[in-house]
Structure formats: C-alpha cells, structure tokens
C-alpha cells in the first residue's frame, strides 16, 4: 500500500504527542499546587501515556508487518518510546514546551486538548479501524481534559491580578506554537485522501471558536489567528525538527533504557 509509511508516521505522531505531553505533565507529580490538582494532572498524564501505548503498539505492528527492520529486530512500544532519537519524534512543538508555572502548564494543556478533542472526534470515523477504535476510547478522556483545562483558564484569567498576569505571560510564550497544530505534515496529506486522517484545516475554525469562547469568559484577549506557516521555524515538530526542549525530555525519559539496555523491573 502506497500510504503504509505515511500511516506509520501518522500513528507515531499521535503516539509521540500523547507521550511527550504526558511526560511533561508527569513532571508535576508530587509538585502540584495542591494535593487534589496534583492528582488531577497526574491522572491526565496517565491518560495520555495510556493513549500513547495504544498508538505505539499499533505502530509497532505496522512496522513489523512492513518488514522494513532487519529480521529479528522486533519493534515494540518500548523500543519506539525509549530508543528513537529526537529527529524521529513527530510530536508538535507545543507538547514539548517546559512546564513553567501552573498557568503555562494549564494553557498548554488547554490548547493541546482543544486540538486533540476535534482531532479524535474526527478520527473516530477514520477508515483505519484501529485508529478509529483508539480515538473512540481516548475521546472520552479528552472531553474531561478539555473541561478541566478550560475551567482553569477561566479561573486564572478571571482571578487575581497575579493569576491574570501569569496567564498573559503564558499566552505570550505559547501562542506561537498553536499554528503548527493545523499545518499537516507531508505524510498526513495522502492519508486525508484515503479517509484515514482528518483534514486539519477543517479543525482550525472549531478550535478557534472554542478558544475564543473560553478566552472571553476568562477575560483574556484573543490574539488573532494561530501563528505559524508550513515549513516555518515553529512548525517542524511533526517532521522531526524540534525545539531544544525535546532533547532534555528524552535525556531523562530514555536514560534508563540507554544506560541499561533491556532493563526490566
């Protein structure tokens, strides 16, 4: 099948997005502002890592079936997560940005969850039965992530002078990474024609409506259409061109398997 490699790349993109943001969120575990929110964000981290596992498992099956690896080199979800280098990761740049303060973590989650919400909503009807099934299951989780992060955006934006100032700083840091969410990578285009992936340009208006709605409740001003253009500096994550932040994540996340290959516990 001509689009087989594209399907592998796309599945890895879905997996990498979930894993990298899940990992970022997990950095808050034990450090949340209050116990209850520490648990809430850790739950979201676990949801995302769980989604990543389903996508990695599927990608591993596709890769093994395609026979592109040397015989005997069996690809698994673990080898995909722990043994690929930065340029093989296809997550969007937004997911890998540092946690910053609570406001930045919240806003990153909100932008991401809103995009993931409309993406999974559409992927539930993908012609690829596996992607459709995983999206169906994950969609329920994302409904809650979006609700949780929306309420925090409103709470902080419409809160104290300090919480509002922090939200505005976070907005300044993160807005530039939102354009990439709606710019398809080269491998996504053939999949849209096959009815497997979703046309990203059709998601953008829905995403903008949602963000405008929450921003207006939060009293935050909407910065205008998401920035970023195809091939631009801030739109390369899906094709492996990352910010420096990803390297730090991988260094920590992959350390054990790199230092002690095959280690289990």
């Amino acid at each position: 099948m001509a689009y087989q490699q594209a399907l592998i790349d796309f599945t890895l993109q879905l997996a990498d997005n979930a894993l990298i943001l899940g990992h970022r969120n997990s950095e808050w575990t034990g450090h949340g502002p209050v116990l209850e929110q520490d648990i809430a964000l850790s739950n979201i981290a676990l949801d995302l890592v769980g989604q990543a596992r389903y996508f990695y498992q599927y990608a591993a099956r596709l890769i093994n079936r395609s026979g592109q690896e040397a015989p005997g080199a069996d690809i698994t979800e673990d080898s995909l997560a722990y043994l690929r280098d930065g340029w093989d990761f296809r997550n969007c740049l937004l997911a890998e940005q540092t946690n910053g303060d609570w406001a930045k973590t919240i806003l990153r989650q909100f932008f991401f969850s809103a995009a993931q919400y409309y993406l999974y909503e559409g992927l539930r009807y993908s012609k690829d039965a596996e992607l459709a099934a995983i999206s169906e299951k994950a969609f329920k989780e994302v409904i809650y992530h979006l609700r949780w992060s929306s309420e925090w955006v409103i709470r902080l934006g419409d809160g104290t002078a300090e919480s509002r100032a922090r939200m505005e700083t976070a907005l300044g840091d993160l807005w530039k990474f939102t354009g990439e969410l709606f710019i398809p990578a080269a491998y996504e285009e053939p999949l849209v024609l096959e009815g497997i992936a979703v046309e990203l340009s059709s998601l953008q208006p829905k995403w903008e409506v949602k963000v405008r709605e929450i921003f207006s409740e939060a009293g935050l001003s909407y910065p205008g259409a998401p920035a970023g253009k195809k091939g631009g500096l801030l739109a390369g994550g899906k094709e492996g061109r990352h910010t420096e932040q990803l390297g730090y994540i991988l260094a920590e996340m992959q350390f054990l398997q790199r230092a002690y290959p095959g280690c289990e516990w």
Partner: peptide, 12 residues
C-alpha cells in the same frame, strides 16, 4: 478534600 467551589469539588 479542598476546592475553591462546588464545581471544582466535584471534579477533584
């Protein structure tokens, strides 16, 4: 548990 309002209490 602690929460700022009823909605947050339900979610927590």
């Amino acid at each position: 548990l602690h929460a700022a309002d009823a909605q947050m209490a339900i979610e927590n």
